[in-house]
């Protein structure tokens, strides 16, 4: 079940234009939070089959539902509507600007349910609402870091404050890579496998560089150097060089960092003066691309080495045999 922190008022503000909504009933409970973001057409449940009927979803009444109800006698209508609309029902939407029957208004007032009416056609409204609500219930998180598009890969640069994330980003910008967001990155889950990173609207494409202040990247480097969002392909963690720590010298093992339950390839990059972080990030990115394409430099080298050693031992054996036979 999807949970949300959205109120009906916020819901209305968000969708009143795209879904051509008006509030018909329930003005006084608009501050209530919407507990479940799912949608349903009551359909067959109105005919009396209510087994497994979910009671906590948005209900859309279209021509089908209203037409069927109108064909029944008043008593049956009231009975059926009373079963389908419960106190847990968040809201009811009437499509295509149909006239609202009085019994629906009665039930909504009695059970504290918000009643909307839309000008859209029923199936359009249904699919729009379905996908919009799904979008709203997407898991989202905000992380500290800088997100860049390096050779088409989304690289999230993380590290403590003042380790040089923004400076690395500047270097990358200078080499015509693109900035998505500096300092604050919003990550949302897309499907079960990918993460989309973007920046907050307000600070998008602005950077803060110590000693310079706030800079507008789009104005400085041009529109070619910015991007709205990108899927996050790898994470580079910058940290100050620790002499006592052993850093990866081979690149055999793959490491991952989890965001919203999805593993993202992770590289720890030690920083000290003299190391060109920009170039290193470019290299990590290219090497990662090679790996994705099926070529793992470290693995290939290791196989080459093993091959060479095998050949050498075969040759040695042959040489030994020759020497022995000569004797």
């Amino acid at each position: 079940m999807n949970s949300s922190k959205l109120t009906f008022k916020e819901f209305y503000e968000l969708f009143k234009d795209p879904m051509e909504l008006e509030i018909c009933c329930g003005h006084e409970i608009l501050d209530k939070r919407i507990k479940n973001l799912e949608v349903q057409r009551p359909g067959v449940s109105l005919a009396g089959w209510v087994e497994d009927f979910p009671t906590n979803r948005f209900l859309i009444f279209g021509q089908l539902e209203l037409g069927y109800l109108n064909s029944l006698d008043r008593e049956t209508i009231l009975k059926r509507v009373d079963i389908v609309i419960t106190k847990k029902t968040p809201a009811i939407l009437i499509s295509k600007n149909y006239n609202i029957p009085d019994y629906l208004i009665d039930v909504c007032i009695r059970k504290n349910v918000v009643l909307f009416r839309s000008k859209m056609r029923t199936m359009e409204l249904f699919s729009k609402l379905f996908f919009s609500l799904k979008d709203l219930s997407k898991p989202v998180t905000t992380v500290h870091g800088t997100l860049m598009d390096v050779y088409g890969l989304g690289v999230l640069i993380q590290g403590d404050s003042s380790v040089g994330k923004s400076e690395a980003a500047l270097g990358l910008l200078e080499r015509k890579h693109r900035l998505i967001s500096d300092d604050v990155v919003k990550i949302e889950k897309k499907g079960d496998t990918s993460l989309i990173g973007t920046g907050p609207d307000l600070t998008r494409h602005f950077m803060e560089i110590r000693g310079i202040g706030l800079i507008d990247v789009a104005a400085l480097f041009g529109a070619v150097c910015i991007r709205h969002d990108i899927s996050i392909d790898l994470v580079v963690q910058l940290e100050l060089w620790d002499e006592d720590k052993f850093y990866d010298r081979i690149g055999f093992d793959r490491h991952f960092k989890k965001y919203l339950g999805i593993d993202v390839p992770y590289y720890l990059l030690p920083v000290k003066s003299g190391r060109d972080v920009t170039l290193l990030i470019e290299t990590i990115s290219l090497n990662h691309r090679l790996k994705v394409m099926g070529y793992d430099s470290a693995k290939e080298f290791s196989e080459k080495l093993l091959d060479a050693m095998n050949n050498k031992s075969v040759k040695n054996n042959e040489n030994n045999k020759k020497i022995k036979s000569k004797k």
Binding site: K5, T142, S161, D183, V184, E208, L214
Partner: peptide
């Protein structure tokens, strides 16, 4: 509903 690192100016501004 937004939690940010307070050591970063951009985060606070956001």
């Amino acid at each position: 509903n937004e939690t940010v690192n307070a050591k970063s100016i951009m985060s606070i501004l956001m």
